[in-house]
Design a binder for these strands. Structure first.
Length: 908
DNA sequence: ACCTCCCGCCAAGAG
DNA sequence: CTCTTGGCGGGAGGT
């Protein structure tokens, strides 16, 4: 400990690092330089004020949690003991601290120099033991990772900036402030741009959009992916591999995959697409690659994409000759992209276990239900990069015609005409474009229409769930969409998982009991790995998956709860809630939602196996299960609101709409009385871990009671279960998100039960448990150290006061419900109504208290994801990316070329 | 030994 | 031409 102190001191007073210390000359080129830090140290005011990043660091599992406070301590050179750290953490958790930090952050547009500085210091301090100071001094490779850098970058901007404001990003400025060369910023920005989180406005200038249109973008990418037959390609590649495996085993399992398709799969590469010329530089751009990569996840049933598969597909597309070096390069790029996506909490790293060994892969943990995003006549084309659109356009058109022609006697001209007509004639089509949206859009719409046509199936679902275009047999199959459950917490995935999926469908209902999954195809689910403890492998597959509700769902859940709170609609709350939601509530919701989203990720990570699968069936009607509270149900479910729904322009609107609908339904829904006792089992798993918290939460592990609400068509077919265990007050006063809920695929569609936010607060401490976070989403609080507490468990509902908070915050009110300010999350622990950061979730607050301090490493990890998009000020919480790298970089050498105007100050 | 992926050279593009 | 972008792959840190 003392050592640590020394280190800190050393760092501060220490002369710049040898290597880096050198002045600009070389330093300039190196990104992270401690030297600067030392130099800067004096300048940075920060020490007293922890930076967001610092907060993040705190939570990072790997590092001892060092709160911003540390900085102060460091200055003092106090011995850094674990105890001290703990105290610090606690302190940090305190609202005051956070507020302060937040303010600082907000006020300071500043460079992160400070941050960097503090961060480095913190890191150093924390880590070091007596070890060499050098080690500490030197920013570890991880600390310089793109993912970490991306987090820092994201921390600078609000995830959901008010539509009115235009946030411009100056690459130079960012590079300087983050202390990296501009080149690195390009990588980040390119990926962000691929998701429309930013857009380029001019040289060196980008505009920050935040996540407002993320769902739309994802939806569009998914559509494109379908059009592009990405899924087929993947299936093809997978099949190949499987075949290889089979050969090895001499076993054969041809079950579910129609081989016939395979041949076609590869075609898509570039039929006639007018796409951009093959190998222009742009075609290889990171942006496009990123979009494609994301698309692969979106169309993947398993939501897991191995890097080599992605690389293969990309190479095939590019028509490049697949030489090894290209493959390698592709993979490198994919890592870059993946790091950014990971920092966005859209994906997480997993490993697919194959007979040959583990393969690096990533699993999609972002939103999977984009239905809410669509409906309106959103301009589909918007979110997609022009280049990609161009590239795809031709293909889409081609595919549409082909399809039409194939299934009819139309010739291409006729097909085109038909397509056009189809589009026009289906005003209701979700894909319908606004007028003037452009040919591209229309084509997509038409294609969709065509696809739908073909799919005679129930069409409640429309969407493009990954199967739409794919081979009818399998694709249409409801089961098909299911993701492989195989991924284990450990990140293992059964290679065969995808096959399993098909089986699953039929048996889904029985799944829980059956281990059938395994049986099929003889596939063994490796997934069990992590949780084997908790669950038998077989079960792993069968058990309900933990589903992270897409934003919309979150909103919905939240809306339900909140609806009442706003009070207007107290009794009829629902109705009021519905309408209100759109208007007043929305603001609050966003925050809540965001939190959820953030939290959910963490959970997801921990419980990889559980989540997923809902999506394919997305379109199905939603069923909402509401907590049984007598009053609540009524409150929440006021039917009247339905009309209101569309008030909001955004997707959020949809959400609202859904909410209202859901609410309406919910009122009735209770009748269904779907009780998920069954779910109890799944939940139990999670619960097991929970114990620690239970005491506080008051909740019992007992199987939660859920109200099953049949959803109206609008809701994607998800059934949502709200835990009945929640506190009585629940609905009305409850802050948003507090409601635990389970989202289930609609019966017809989804055989798979999706479990979301287990009622019980996860025992954070229990970290080791495989499903640590299975429960409710963790919000920013996690950062505080009690990750899970934040979970939206039934217990969460407890605090009534919080309810008021949501609406109050002006910032939150922004159109986007999603808007989560990091601050808020943090504050949860000690939420103060008055504070800007009002956490909103009472629950979280409570829990924090419960287990504020000790956070298991695992938990921590999970939490890190929360970080994305923290608002500038609030940021502190974020946890660093999986490996946690703390940017110790001093801003010193921005870029070789980069002038360091401001930097001069620092360096000086 | 393999996985990751940082770093920065240097060329394509933009102005 | 200068400067911005960003493809690319060597090679080193991590595991």
């Amino acid at each position: 400990m003392e050592v640590n102190c020394l280190t800190l001191k050393d760092l501060i007073s220490r002369p710049p690092r040898l290597d880096f210390a050198i002045e600009d000359g070389e330093n300039a080129q190196k990104e992270n330089i401690f030297v600067d830090l030392s130099r800067m140290a004096p300048k940075t005011p920060i020490k007293n004020e922890p930076i967001d990043l610092s907060k993040q660091k705190i939570f990072t599992p790997e590092r001892n949690p060092i709160t911003p406070v540390k900085l102060v301590d460091r200055q003092q050179a106090e011995p850094w003991t674990p105890t001290t750290n703990l105290k610090i953490l606690i302190r940090a958790a305190s609202p005051d601290m956070r507020d302060r930090e937040k303010k600082k952050g907000l006020f300071r547009p500043i460079e992160n120099k400070d941050d960097a500085f503090t961060g480095s210091l913190q890191l150093d301090a924390a880590d070091d033991s007596a070890v060499d100071e050098f080690e500490k001094q030197r920013p570890s490779r991880k600390q310089k990772s793109l993912g970490l850098l991306c987090q820092k970058f994201l921390a600078r901007y609000p995830s959901q900036p008010p539509s009115t404001e235009k946030t411009t990003i100056s690459l130079d400025e960012v590079a300087v402030s983050l202390g990296v060369e501009r080149r690195r910023i390009y990588d980040i920005v390119n990926v962000l741009e691929s998701l429309q989180l930013v857009s380029r406005v001019a040289k060196n200038q980008y505009s920050w959009h935040g996540t407002h249109s993320l769902l739309k973008t994802l939806r569009n990418l998914q559509r494109l992916g379908v059009e592009q037959k990405y899924e087929e390609q993947m299936a093809h590649l997978q099949q190949k591999e499987l075949d290889l495996i089979d050969d090895k085993f001499g076993e054969r399992r041809r079950d579910g995959c129609p081989d016939s398709q395979d041949p076609q799969l590869l075609d898509f590469s570039e039929p006639d697409c007018p796409s951009s010329s093959a190998n222009s530089r742009k075609d290889k751009s990171l942006r496009i690659m990123s979009q494609k990569f994301v698309t692969l996840f979106l169309v993947s049933k398993t939501k897991i994409v191995t890097l080599d598969m992605a690389a293969k597909i990309l190479i095939e597309e590019s028509q490049d000759t697949p030489d090894h070096s290209k493959f390698k390069t592709k993979v490198r790029r994919l890592y870059d992209i993946a790091n950014v996506l990971t920092s966005l909490a859209l994906i997480k790293k997993v490993h697919v276990t194959e007979d040959r060994g583990r393969k690096p892969a990533f699993e999609w943990i972002g939103p999977v239900d984009f239905s809410s995003a669509d409906d309106d006549l959103v301009d589909v084309s918007t979110p997609v990069l022009p280049e990609l659109k161009k590239e795809i356009y031709g293909h889409v058109q081609f595919c549409a015609k082909q399809k039409l022609a194939r299934h009819s006697s139309f010739n291409s001209e006729q097909a085109s005409e038909k397509i056009q007509r189809k589009v026009n004639s289906e005003p209701s089509s979700p894909y319908r474009q606004k007028q003037g949206s452009g040919i591209y859009s229309l084509e997509i719409g038409s294609l969709a229409a065509v696809s739908r046509q073909k799919m005679e199936d129930n069409s409640e679902v429309v969407a493009f769930a990954s199967q739409s275009v794919t081979p009818p047999s399998s694709s249409l199959d409801p089961a098909a969409p299911l993701r492989s459950p195989s991924v284990d917490s450990e990140y293992r995935v059964s290679p065969l998982s995808h096959q399993v999926l098909s089986v699953a469908q039929t048996d889904l209902k029985a799944l829980p009991a059956q281990s059938g999954m395994n049986g099929q195809g003889g596939v063994s689910l490796a997934s069990t790995a992590l949780d084997a403890e908790h669950q038998p492998p077989a079960l792993a597959a069968a058990r309900p998956l933990l589903y992270v509700p897409p934003a919309p769902l979150f909103m919905l859940c939240r809306g339900l709860q909140e609806g009442p709170s706003p009070g207007s609609g107290s009794g009829s709350g629902c109705g009021g809630g519905g309408s209100e939601v759109t208007a007043a509530e929305q603001p609050s919701m966003p925050s809540g939602q965001k939190r959820l989203s953030k939290e959910r990720r963490p959970q997801v990570e921990e419980e990889p196996a559980t989540k997923r699968q809902s999506r394919d069936h997305e379109d199905g009607p939603l069923s909402l299960v509401m907590p049984k509270k007598p009053s609540d149900s009524t409150d929440i479910a006021s039917p009247k609101t339905s009309e209101n729904r569309r008030s909001a322009p955004h997707e959020d609107t949809h959400m609202n709409g859904q909410l209202s609908a859901a609410k309406a339904v919910s009122g009735k829904a209770t009748t269904n009385g779907f009780v998920s006792s069954e779910w109890g089992n799944p939940s139990r798993n999670t619960e097991i871990e929970k114990p620690s918290k239970e005491n506080e939460s008051t909740k019992e592990p007992s199987p939660l009671q859920y109200l099953y609400v049949q959803s109206p068509a609008g809701l994607n077919g998800f059934s949502v279960l709200l835990s009945g265990s929640q506190s009585p007050h629940a609905v009305g006063p409850l802050p948003p998100l507090s409601v635990p809920c389970m989202v289930l695929p609609s019966p017809p569609l989804g055989a798979f039960p999706v479990l979301y936010s287990p009622t019980m607060p996860r025992p954070v401490s229990s970290a080791p448990s495989p499903l640590p976070n299975a429960g409710p989403v963790n919000f920013g609080l996690t950062s505080l150290g009690s990750t899970p507490h934040l979970l939206i468990g039934p217990a969460a509902l407890v605090n009534p006061k919080s309810s008021t908070l949501p609406s109050t915050d002006p910032q939150l009110q922004g159109p986007c419900s999603l808007h989560l300010s990091p601050v808020m999350s943090r504050s949860h622990g000690s939420v103060q109504p008055g504070s800007p950061a009002y956490g909103g979730h009472p629950a979280s607050t409570v829990k924090l208290q419960q287990s504020p301090v000790p956070v298991t490493p695992k938990n921590i990890r999970c939490t890190h994801q929360e970080t994305f998009f923290k608002t500038p000020g609030s940021l502190g919480d974020r946890v660093l990316r999986r490996k946690e790298r703390n940017p110790s970089r001093s801003s010193s050498s921005a870029q070789r070329r980069l002038e360091i105007p401001s930097g001069g100050g620092r360096l000086a």
